[in-house]
């Protein structure tokens, strides 16, 4: 589904990613872990198409499409979803209108007609319940005045509505209490199937107790330096990142 080959990227002339290779197959969950400043968020931004980052080398293929040539909205319509670490507040635009526009754009791209108002409302209520958001949130402005937990739930709500092929969760666990974390994870688990894939970016292991990864990668200084199964995450939880840094310092 996703193939990243020798990806190099920089921001304002400063190299951040220095040769990322990664393959994510349908039906799998990959975790990307790493110490602060290792390039985790840059990786998610580059895949989603943030323009501040300049790709200097390498390729990103998504279901046979070289997405580096696509605008961010085109990538999204192809089925790429990023759950933001810091979801944006949009005063004056209701959650219902926002997600309706987004869903219809994706449907249009697939050659499908817009959903009827009734079907749409039904779908919204169902997905809101999945992440524990009350109906009245639909009328409120996107993320405006939401608590940290509500914002993250809203990200997963949008994910559920858009039903993407690849979802990148960027530090979705940050700022969540244990109950919200569990709700969010349950939401993700309910959406997991053999057709889609998840890339879970996190500093801590605790989210991976709930969303169990098939593959765990460790990112350090812009490269993937370790790859393993879920036990790698447990080792990091236990021993921290010092051994990774020690082991790979020379290369960096």
């Amino acid at each position: 589904m996703l193939q990243i080959k020798n990806l190099h990227a920089q921001i304002e002339g400063k190299p951040i990613l220095k040769g990322i290779n990664l393959e994510v197959k349908a039906g799998t969950v990959h975790a990307i872990m790493g110490p602060n400043g290792s390039g985790k968020s840059t990786l998610s931004s580059v895949i989603a198409g943030r323009e501040e980052y300049e790709v200097t080398e390498g390729e990103i293929w998504f279901n046979g499409v070289n997405i580096l040539e696509l605008e961010p909205e085109e990538r999204a319509r192809e089925g790429l979803f990023l759950a933001f670490q810091y979801p944006i507040e949009i005063p004056g635009v209701s959650n219902a209108n926002f997600i309706k526009m987004a869903v219809n754009e994706v449907r249009k791209h697939k050659g499908l007609e817009s959903l009827s108002a009734t079907d749409f409302l039904k779908l919204m209520r169902e997905k809101a319940a999945l992440v524990g958001l009350k109906d009245d949130f639909l009328k409120r402005s996107v993320n405006a005045g939401f608590s940290g937990g509500e914002k993250k739930r809203n990200e997963i709500f949008q994910l559920a509505m858009l039903d993407p092929k690849l979802s990148i969760l960027d530090e979705t666990d940050s700022g969540l209490d244990i109950d919200a974390l569990r709700t969010v994870a349950e939401g993700v688990n309910a959406l997991k199937n053999s057709e889609n894939a998840f890339l879970v970016i996190t500093h801590y292991q605790r989210l991976l107790d709930y969303i169990v990864p098939d593959v765990v990668h460790v990112l350090y200084d812009g490269r993937i330096v370790e790859t393993g199964d879920k036990n790698l995450a447990l080792k990091l939880e236990d021993q921290g990142y010092d051994w990774v840094i020690e082991k790979h310092k020379q290369e960096a």
Partner: peptide, 12 residues
């Protein structure tokens, strides 16, 4: 930031 948020959801 706001525009990127829209665009990431498929809205131009």
């Amino acid at each position: 930031d706001i525009l990127f948020y829209f665009r990431q959801r498929g809205i131009g």
